[in-house]
Design a binder for these strands. Structure first.
Length: 287
DNA sequence: CGCCTTTGACCCGCGC
DNA sequence: GCGCGGGTCAAAGGCG
């Protein structure tokens, strides 16, 4: 059995990942089928569907990306009032319902946590996006500024999980970064929330196309933070030598709502979307 | 000085 | 009720 299949059922909601390389091995089909049942994964076959305008739709609402968002991926506040009625909602989902009431470090957080929590009141849950990235560095540069606010050991894993918060005021986007227990070369980054601001100007000036492509900065790879089809575009122009296959998934409420891989090079990539998330000046730096 | 990381303590929900 | 595990806080220290 391949050990790259992960059943991530530790923190967030039940999210599972599978590297594309592994997907390509037929012996895994059976396992993925079981994942479909357990985690409500999309059909195995859907992982290999060509990237096309038709399936780039949901990613436009990727909360991590600062796109023009009507953000319908954020679940409605009226949903699943009773956790028991929603077996896919896990403990941490509910924890985050609480978190939503506490804003920012520095305002007597613990008491805010207690007092700010309104019993019986469901908070909207932020949609999340997870990426698996082959990288030697844990914290991949993605153009935004993050402040680490915690690190915890992960049960059954020798690798700790780090917690980051976007440093921009009033932006409560968080991300979790951890290494795969089964494949330490894989970094799992989970974004939660939606940036309500552009990429910090300080980074606009310093992030170059080479950064985007991982050619500079000791492996820093901004590119890998983007959804698959956006990466496709950049990769097509400048494929880094160390590029590895990655599968990313968008999910909410424990349901994978989209997945991407780089095995389907399609000419119909939505380049327009890319320009929404990568400043044009950066793209012009290429070539 | 400002920003960041580190890290132990704490809070909370869940399962037994 | 208690222990466990995930998530967060915040003080302390490092660094440019």
């Amino acid at each position: 059995m391949d050990d790259h299949v992960e059943h991530k059922n530790t923190s967030s909601e039940e999210v599972s990942f599978m590297s594309l390389t592994d997907c390509l091995q037929s012996s895994l089909v059976m396992d993925y089928n079981s994942l479909e049942k357990v985690f409500k994964f999309p059909p195995y076959s859907s992982l290999f569907q060509p990237v096309s305008p038709s399936n780039t739709g949901p990613i436009v609402n990727n909360p991590y990306l600062n796109l023009n968002s009507n953000s319908p991926v954020v679940s409605s506040s009226s949903n699943e009032a009773d956790p028991k009625e929603n077996p896919n909602e896990t403990k941490s989902d509910r924890m985050e319902d609480i978190e939503g009431d506490q804003h920012g470090v520095g305002e007597s957080s613990k008491q805010v946590t207690k007092q700010g929590k309104k019993k019986g009141e469901k908070k909207e849950r932020e949609a999340r996006v997870a990426f698996m990235t082959k990288s030697e560095i844990d914290h991949l540069e993605d153009g935004y500024r993050w402040r680490k606010y915690g690190q915890k050991a992960v049960k059954n894993s020798p690798y700790p999980r780090s917690y980051y918060r976007c440093t921009t005021q009033k932006c409560n986007v968080k991300k979790r970064v951890e290494r795969s227990f089964h494949d330490p070369s894989i970094v799992i980054t989970t974004y939660e929330g939606k940036h309500n601001h552009p990429i910090p100007s300080t980074l606009r000036g310093t992030v170059t196309a080479e950064h985007l492509l991982g050619h500079r900065g000791g492996g820093s790879n901004f590119l890998h933070s983007f959804p698959r089809h956006h990466q496709e575009f950049l990769m097509a122009k400048h494929p880094p030598a160390n590029y590895q296959r990655v599968v990313s998934m968008s999910y909410e409420q424990g349901h994978v709502i989209n997945s991407y891989n780089n095995n389907n090079h399609q000419p119909g990539v939505d380049y327009g979307l890319l320009q929404d998330i990568v400043p044009s000046m950066l793209l012009k730096h290429e070539s």
